[in-house]
Design a protein around this nucleic acid. Structure first.
Lengths: 341, 341
DNA sequence: CAGTTAGTTGTGAGCACTAACAATCGTTTC
DNA sequence: GAAACGATTGTTAGTGCTCACAACTAACTG
């Protein structure tokens, strides 16, 4: 910085002013400084800046180590939104979602002095861990949904999620409307709030319609788990439709049905959840519930930045923040038809 | 830090020594300091540390904004490897792979004073952009493969990639061995080195076997592009097999064949590339070439850290680094059989 | 018992930057 | 024409940490 100042014939403070786009610098001086910067290929040392301003302009992302479409797109959405707001993004991935792993990740990010954290970590253990955090640290949890966690201060951990309950409603009602009576559900891991909300939505529709509610078979979001549950369920002669907790499980499920001689959709209708880009090209093309992952990412960053800025301007942290829910949308394709006869 | 020192009754320097696990601190003093840290929930200010040591202990990842399985798993692999080596990871995603976008991303990372960059950016424009970087900045490109870029200093941009040529060889030979004569190829975007290498492998096998080499149909890695090319190719009555540039394209391709009444694998055999977790559950389960994404991520970080450490210890940067290639593996499933009659 | 040594702890400077204040200059106002 | 003002630029201090070096302590040597 001194070098730039010397070359431009000004003081380092003027260089700083130019760097931060402050007013009150004569245009020609500004130009001289910019030219000097260009010549020296200067770029500011953000460590020094962070040190003195006490603002790192960095956000942290805690991401469950998953290559599923949802979490993966979240990374990019959040980074892009962060960049547009002038923040850097550091990531901390976690292999498992137990309390310890999540707290470790938070610690790593805190050491980096991030100004806020986006956590795409869903299990209750994760929620609890996050609730334990120092009250000052802005955070938003993606996907916690209705199961919002309360923090020691009494506030709620702000969260943004797809309205999974409504999504499940949409999917199940669609099957009911087609005339199905025996509608099964392949759920995600029972301790994930997302999975729970989808189970609840499915159950609510069946109960309202006076239809039998079968046992819930839980998988782990993977196609393999859908396949394995499918092999089990294929023995159930009454089933004419199934709502799967995500598209991958639906894929595995359809494959298992196919192997056991039951055709999709003629014998069994299948609905997924997510609408991954491939779902349209499955055989048959999958009816599914589309989540707005782009909106989820953007919205969560909005919520986070609101906290960051509130803290920065010394405002009291907003009290009870209600969880933000984003409504998903049913996409009807070829995997669902009326039941046979 | 001063607070900790005061509480433990030592100087700030002793606290620093404990913090950095330096020797020559009496065990009981160390314990006292650690206890004080715990009591105050102290964590070091990494900005100050970076400022004085001139080492940020942060690496940067430039990632093409893609939710494909490969790029997505790379993020986690790299983060994990970085963490284990004691580095933080900052990400900069790019929407498009033109020179400008890539250079912007590099700039953002440099402003963060990252010590090295992993770029999962593949197009020649990206390669060129990276080749222009200041010689001092450690970098590794994932996926550039044989098309290594040279830097102004004369060195080669170090790269780690799947051996795509060999992968294509494996896939195509498999089809030839089954007795196919008319083997088509659906490639990725022609300007991606990965796509080019796969095209070359396919062509080499056909030429060696004296089989006809049809036109190359280029897609964009998406299932949709596979589908669209499939609609076109379905009119080709001679075709009995196709090698697709990735699994998603293979999926779309199979769907198009199905729609036009040609059965996979009975009428047309299909091979993919990647072995995404779902490939095993496609209908039919997909024969494909498995890429070792875990190895790719780890290996690229090894290569990067070697440079970072060399620079740190003042060693001359290694001269001509040969690109590291990781050999993929053929996974035979149900989508390939001998041609009809 | 002085002199050396190794182990441990403390002191001062400086990293690159910004905030706060001080100084300069030309212009306006009365 | 002096005082006041606003715009621009400069000076100083301080951010939390590590490095280099200094200082102290206890043990050992001749």
């Amino acid at each position: 910085m001194m070098d730039v100042a010397r070359l431009a014939g000004v003081s380092h403070q003027t260089v700083s002013r130019v760097l931060n786009n402050q007013a009150n610098v004569r245009p020609e001086t500004r130009e001289r400084v910019l030219e000097a910067m260009r010549q020296l290929d200067y770029r500011r040392n953000s460590a020094a800046r962070t040190l003195v301003t006490r603002r790192s302009r960095t956000l942290g992302l805690i991401s469950f180590e998953s290559t599923l479409f949802g979490p993966a797109s979240m990374v990019y959405q959040v980074e892009q939104a962060a960049r547009e707001a002038g923040y850097f993004l550091t990531i901390a991935s976690v292999r498992s979602l137990d309390r310890r792993a999540v707290l470790d990740a938070v610690d790593r990010l805190r050491e980096q002095s991030v100004e806020g954290i986006v956590a795409t970590a869903h299990m209750p253990a994760a929620g609890e861990a996050l609730a334990e955090l120092p009250a000052g640290l802005p955070i938003v949890v993606v996907g916690l949904g209705a199961a919002a966690a309360t923090r020691p201060g009494g506030g709620i951990v702000p969260s943004v999620a797809t309205d999974n309950h409504t999504g499940a409603l949409l999917a199940t009602r669609h099957l009911v409307a087609l005339g199905h009576k025996e509608i099964r559900h392949l759920s995600g891991p029972v301790d994930w709030p997302e999975a729970q909300d989808r189970v609840a939505g499915w159950r609510d529709v069946l109960t309202d319609a006076g239809l039998p509610v079968g046992p819930v078979l839980a998988g782990d979001w993977s196609a393999r788990s859908g396949y394995e549950l499918g092999r089990l369920l294929a023995r159930d002669p009454d089933m004419t439709a199934a709502f799967c907790a995500n598209d991958q499980m639906a894929l595995g499920f359809a494959r298992a049905l196919h192997e056991t001689g039951r055709r999709v959709p003629h014998d069994v209708s299948v609905v997924g959840f997510d609408d991954v880009p491939e779902a349209e090209f499955y055989l048959p093309p999958l009816t599914t519930v589309r989540q707005d992952f782009v909106g989820l990412g953007r919205r969560s960053l909005d919520v986070l930045l609101a906290q960051v800025e509130a803290r920065d301007s010394g405002a009291a942290p907003a009290g009870a923040v209600t969880p933000t829910l984003i409504t998903p949308e049913l996409v009807v394709r070829a995997s669902t038809v009326a039941p046979p006869d």
